[in-house]
Nucleic acid binder design. Structure first.
Lengths: 168, 168
DNA sequence: TGCATATTATACATAAATGTACTATATGTT
DNA sequence: AACATATAGTACATTTATGTATAATATGCA
C-alpha cells in the first residue's frame, strides 16, 4: 500500500484505473500531460505570490522580462506575444496595465504605421532590478531538486516535446 | 546565425540577453520554467480544440476523467480538486456546469453532512466513451516525437521536479 | 493606379480562474 | 453539555484569459 507523498499521486492512481477500464488509453502520454499541468500551476502560483508585493503578476513579469532581454528594451506587440507565450488579445490588456503603471510606453513606428513599439521605461528597468534578486532566488530554489545534469536532460526532453507538438 | 525553427527560440534568445545583463540570473531554471509554460499552453489549447465538439473544455474533461478513474465513479469536491489540480473555488463552478449538462450529479453524504459526493451519471460515462478514442489519438500524436525511453525519462524528471517544488 | 489580400493591433463580449468571506457541520477539550 | 477550533463546500466579487469582429495600414499584382 503506497502513501500519497505528493500531490500527483491521486492523479496517477486514477489514470491507472482509467487504463484498466479503457485499455487503449495511453498511460505515459496522459501522465506527461498531467505532470506538465501540475507543474505549470504550481510555478505560476509561486511566481504570483513572490511578485505580488511588487504590484505585478506572473504574465506581466513575463512581458517585462522579454523587453528587458531585448536590445533597446523594445518589441512590437506581436513579438512580445510570441516571446511571452501569450495570445495577442491578452497583450493589449496586459500592456495597457503596464502603461498605466508607467513601466512601459507605446510609440508608433515611422516605417510601418501599423506597428507599435513597446519600450521599457526607466521606471520599468528600476522595478525589474528591484525584484530580480528575489526572482533569481525563487528560480534557484524551485530547481534545487535537480542536479545540473538532470536539469540539462530535462531541458532537452522538454524542447523535443515542444518542437514535435508544434509541427504536428 | 540560428534560425527560429520553433516558438521557443525568441524566448530563449531573450533569456540569454537577460543573463548577460544580469549575471546572477539563472538561465537553466528560467528556461525550464518557460518551457513548462509554453508546453502547458499548447497542450491546453490542443485539448480544448479537440473537446469543443463534445461540448466540454479541458478542465471539465479533467474532472470527468478523474471520476472515471475512480471506483464507483465518485469523489468529494476536495478530492476532485486535488486529483484534477484545480482550486476549490473552481471546482464549484465547473461541477455546477457538469451538473447542468447532466454528466455528473451531487448527493449529500450521510456519514459527514459537510461532505458532498460527486458521481458520474450514465450519460457522463457515455460521453466519456464517446470522446475517449479521439483523446487517445491526440495523446499519442502529442507524444509521438518522444521515444518510449525518452518519455519514461521525462516522466521521471518531471516528477522529481514537482516533488521538490512541493516540499520547498 | 486600383483592387484583392495580408498584417497589426485593438475593442468588446464572453468564459475561466482566483481570492475572500461565509455557512454548515464536525471534532476535540474542558 | 458547552465552547472553541477545524474542515468542507460554496457564493460572490474580481481578475485574468480567450474568441471574434473590426479598423487601419501595408503589400502584391493585374
Amino acid at each position: 500500500m503506497m502513501n500519497a507523498v505528493n500531490s500527483f499521486a491521486p492523479t496517477e492512481q486514477r489514470l491507472a484505473v482509467t487504463c484498466r477500464r479503457h485499455p487503449a488509453f495511453p498511460r505515459e502520454p496522459a501522465v506527461l500531460v498531467r505532470l506538465v499541468k501540475h507543474l505549470y500551476k504550481r510555478l505560476h502560483d509561486d511566481a504570483n505570490t513572490l511578485l505580488k508585493p511588487w504590484g505585478i503578476n506572473h504574465p506581466e513579469y513575463n512581458l517585462l522580462m522579454m523587453l528587458y532581454g531585448t536590445e533597446g528594451y523594445t518589441l512590437s506587440p506581436s513579438q512580445l506575444a510570441a516571446a511571452a507565450g501569450e495570445k495577442s488579445a491578452n497583450i493589449t490588456r496586459l500592456t495597457d496595465e503596464l502603461c498605466d503603471k508607467g513601466l512601459i510606453e507605446r510609440t508608433a513606428s515611422d516605417e510601418d504605421r501599423r506597428k507599435i513599439a513597446l519600450t521599457l521605461t526607466k521606471a520599468g528597468v528600476v522595478v525589474i532590478k528591484g525584484f530580480l534578486p528575489d526572482v533569481c532566488a525563487l528560480l534557484e530554489r524551485q530547481t534545487a531538486g535537480l542536479q545540473p545534469r538532470e536539469a540539462a536532460q530535462l531541458e532537452k526532453l522538454l524542447k523535443k516535446f515542444l518542437d514535435h507538438l508544434e509541427q504536428a
